[in-house]
Design a protein around this nucleic acid. Sequence first.
DNA 1: GACTCCTGTTACCGCAAGTAACATGTGAGT
DNA 2: ACTCACATGTTACTTGCGGTAACAGGAGTC
Lengths: 214, 214
Amino acid sequence: MDTTQRTDQQRSADRRRRELLEAADRVVLRDGPGASMNAIAAEAGITKPILYRHFGDKGGLYAALAKRHTDALLEALRAALDAPAERRERVEATLDTYLAAIEARPQVYRFLMHPSEGGPQGDQGFDIGLYSAPVLRRMGEELGKVIEERVDLGPGSQQLARVWGHGIVGMMHAAGDWWLGERPCSRAELVRSLADLLWGRLAAAGDRVGGPGF
Amino acid sequence: MDTTQRTDQQRSADRRRRELLEAADRVVLRDGPGASMNAIAAEAGITKPILYRHFGDKGGLYAALAKRHTDALLEALRAALDAPAERRERVEATLDTYLAAIEARPQVYRFLMHPSEGGPQGDQGFDIGLYSAPVLRRMGEELGKVIEERVDLGPGSQQLARVWGHGIVGMMHAAGDWWLGERPCSRAELVRSLADLLWGRLAAAGDRVGGPGF
DNA sequence: GACTCCTGTTACCGCAAGTAACATGTGAGT
DNA sequence: ACTCACATGTTACTTGCGGTAACAGGAGTC
């Protein structure tokens, strides 16, 4: 009948879509974010217009791709955030989860956060910068919500929690990005350093000899 | 002689270069970061190849453009960082300086940090994402140096300071970006909230009723 | 068998980055 | 005065991308 047929078709379309996304994933992870639609189509064994029929435009495809990875990352973060432990331990676990993720799959990370710098040669094409912001925004919003739910911040807590959510995510992101590039220390050390920062060690530290401190 | 001639020529070339950069600035601020080389050349009253002779490629031009603005911003930040005041006040002044800058010239900010999302219509073109990272990196490095010079952090201070430098810059950036988009509060409130975060208020806050806190 | 979708193709448009090859003005050296 | 070197400027082109139109089967439905 009509319904079953529609269902069948939708099923088929969804499967196809997933296959295409997986092919796109392979190409993007291999060639960097500058991968062309032609290359992706070729990897999937088809041609361009099909991609456009499924995803509208390149932005749609990349958004779908980004969503997959983002969802996975957010789930891992939520787990670390919800673990039964002291606050400090949770913070460290969350930081460590994030850093472990970007360490384990730097290609994915670079795709999500640092559009196009992959390929050895020119990457005229497309700006995916629009998709890195949403990732960080989502993480910031989620963290803000968790903070507001869990921590007693007195009046104005909602706003404060949101600011902190975005701020902490930004801190994690920037520090992680720098760390991933230079690897100046172990992951555990980085986690501890960041947690110390959040724990007010900057305020507690004394001035250095020779003048007023920062 | 040779030297004076070379100097004259170089002077002329430098002036030309500055003019071109100013024209590029106007176009980028008007049309968004997706501005084409043709458009920039037209604004400057010349044609494309000249731009390429001066800046190599579009990346070179945009890097030069970014450097201008970045230098200006860094100088303002250094001033706030070096002001004679208590540490907390300096931190707040620095945060406020950064936020005031991005608030005053959001177009410039978006150009530096958020490549291509300016124009109302399609922006196939070019990825400037490569230039936002350097900006943040430079800020992070500088802040790290200042912290290491001024704050007594005990053993491992250099590494810790660098981590904190990048982390704090990332926090400032992410929170500022979110704030600029949503304007959920005044600048002063944002500054206070972030400074409170750095001052360990997250660690000091109590759990909310109903379970262990974040 | 005609009709309708869905999938797939080839061939094309428009536009941007980047490049060659050619034109021209100007000061230096002889 | 002539020419050489050189910087500045041009037009016209190539290449490669995103995106689209128009066409070509194939599988169910009436």
